[in-house]
Design a protein around this nucleic acid. Sequence first.
DNA 1: TGCAATGCATA
DNA 2: GTATGCATTGCAA
Length: 960
Amino acid sequence: MSDQKRLFLVDAYALIFRGYYAFIKNPRINSKGEDTSAIMGFMNSLLDVIKRERPDHLAVCFDKGGSADRVEMYEEYKANRDETPEGIRTAIPHICNILEAMHIPIMVKEGYEADDVIGTLSRQAEKEGYKVFMVTPDKDFAQLVTENIFMYKPVFGGGYDIWGIPEVQKKFEVESPLQVIDFLGMMGDSSDNIPGLPGVGEKTAKKFITQFGSMEGLLANTDQLKGKMKEKVEANGELGLLSKKLATIMLDVPVTFNAKDFELDHPDVEKVKEIFQELEFRRLTDNFVKTFTSGAEATSGLSNGTSTSLSDQKSSSPNSNSSSNSSSAGAGQFSLFGGTSAPLSDQDSETSSTNARQTIETTSHFYQSVAPGMATTLFVKNLLNQSSVCFDTETTGLNPLTAELVGIAFSWEAGKGFYIPFPEDKNEAQALIETLRPFFENESIEKVGQNLKYDIKVLAKYNIKVKGKLFDTMLAHYLINPDMRHNMDVLAETYLNYTPVSITELIGKKGKNQLSMRDVPLEKQTEYAVEDADITLQLKEHFQKELGEADTQKLFDDIEVPLLRVLADMELEGINLDEEFLNSLSEDLNNDIADLEKSIYEAAGEEFNIGSPKQLGVILFEKLKLVDKPKKTKTGQYSTAEDVLSYLAKDHKIIQDVLDYRGLAKLKSTYVDALPTQVEESTGRVHTDYMQTVAATGRLSSNNPNLQNIPIRTERGRQVRKAFIPRDENYTLLAADYSQIELRIIAALSKETTMIEAFKNGEDIHASTASKVFNVPIKEVTREQRSNAKTVNFGIIYGVSAFGLSNQTNLSRGEAKELIDTYYETYPKLKAYMSAQVDFARDNGYVSTVLGRRRYLKDINSRNAVVRGAAERNAVNAPIQGSAADIIKIAMINIHQKLNEGNYKSKMLLQVHDELVFDIYKPELETLKTIIKTEMESAYKLEVPLDVEMDIGLNWLEAH
DNA sequence: TGCAATGCATA
DNA sequence: GTATGCATTGCAA
């Protein structure tokens, strides 16, 4: 019924708080020093609701004097609320004045909360045939929802959710909104200090509601519960019922809904303007006047007209502001580009006398969109005459497998660029990209971009191969300074003193209301996209010089840029996942986790959240007092980290159970349950994203999902690897990994002949080390000796200390020190090499890998021993880890090339630091085994041979 | 909602 | 002791 009268009831404090905190980082202070954030925030929300909904009836409800009844029931009710912030207390009188001037009724009742007032009024209005909307972000109100009463819930980033019965049912997993009370009662609410049932959180509460329907139902049927949970609930029945009462919104407050009073009529505009002016609200005054004068249609119509004519004016005379008398073909064609052109700023707006960063507003530029048809044809012709062009694709999302092209920006001259918008229709878009194919596939035009891997992947989906020389500014900067971040905004600010238009300005913050680039007006798209291309081009000029200075140029041309194409192919390829297998694994884990949970609760004597280190610490060390002097973390919590607990595990079953629980829970949530959700719908495979510029040592990293940390150490964990399977029955997985590559590198670099010989003779390096440091024949080395030697071998790579070593072994600090000393005596050159690295870093401020990849260590001369120590360990580790990364990158590039040249069906799928995984087409197996092994082992020549182990199998576990 | 702290998976 | 990414909890904004 569209003619049903609508009443809006506004939860004042909730909106005031929300508004206040929205400005918390940047509070609104007027010239009198008053903090007006809360008023501003609240008025914005109120006007927004009025403008959107044009309610017939509206009232604003406040709390007064807290809830006497609730405090009587439970003296700690809301006791942990902080005092109302100053900025909010001072706002209240102003808000009341404004509401009065707006002729909006203020509903309060001493001794009741706004919830109760709203609850009561909404029920009364419903009886009189109204549709009621409760304007509040507070989920507790869900209990009041009926067929005619709705929640009108503001969401972050703008807009509202309307919760009716179906939404509440879904959200809380209840049948009736009234069960929300039971839900809140069970789970409790820390902000209102409603205790709830101990040990019951959101998940358990939902389970109980489904099972028993209500708090009373639960309490009457505790015989159906088992173990500790049963005791716990039985013992706390009273508390449960009390919590439920506290959570219940009252419906019998002595207030009356009087339709006449609640009518939203014409406000005293002058009075409101006066108050706003006093508070120094300019925008809000305009907003208010627009909302309440001529009506919405007229207002928005007017503003549209204005903005259109404005932009017309600007685009009509683009050349007047164009930065340079652009050379060549470009200039002559402007008149043909019938599309919109981004506005150009006039320099007159007194640009920075300060050091303020330049922006699009303060810089002269010529950015233009190119219209379809003849203009585009001419544009492409011009494009093909260039020798180096920067381009940047704009798409509908971040996932290149699903993202559609919205436009492509081009720039080949600083301050100038063009934008080709793409139609939404797939066929038309494909037709348009075909006209650009000659450019992208031209071998002799250099392509410049920021994070080209992304653009290349997007274009690959349109069957476009990007050929020719590449210059990726992100990669360039990664080599110039690997420790910094490399996103374009930061680079522009650092190197060009320029702040680009932010993406959030265009499409909003991420979340519900984020727009797609497609929804952005063409003019804005053009500005944003061309600016990116322009800036990237300018950054290239900057970085090109810096690259030339060291081996960095070679690293860039021979390693990182070629690798970018390899990674793009691997990511597009993805890997096949056996989802059914993971699902069954998940069920097994579930059962085992439940068993452990039960056993832990029994030992603890109560239920708690095992996943919370905080709660666990209290149970273990305060309640059970398992240790005299528990170790604390730096924040003062009890440490429940693995190494601490495993030390205690043999004495206390509960600790072993906790460790097992953690292991299984981690396994389930991070791998078994998460991986199937990462399968890409369009390909049916899992596509990780390799980050080429995050690891300061030169390694790759993998995310969404991370396929470089799939478990292998524990029996249970490694089962996950069974889920990674070949493409189909014609394929098999092959894993090839470098054996001991880091130790081989350190042996070679240090020229430690003893160790080099051991590698040359193909000895078990850890046993060999043990035999030497413990002075026993290699055949007589014990398991423990080998294990300790292994730990030291690895420790060396990381920069050992006696402390660290004794922590990792069963050796005492003294024994550890002795072992390290003997180790250095055995391998004196190794020791010398390490010192030399540190000295080099001290003198030069950096260390480098075999290929000259640098890592700068600014703390190497720090007076702080801890900080300096860390830098010294980096000085030792970075060349080792980084050289290994260099070597496998070379191997990847060469193998990729061989696979392409030979037109093999087999594909390289994954890289895990020292391992490569392939989908091998069975008929190609023998040939490729040779190629892969050869390429990996000969990727880089060291004095120590590189050794690669390979295996094949029906899944990644078997292949390893 | 977003962030810090904690813990844990890999090489 | 090196290098990462991510799930969860609990609190702040």
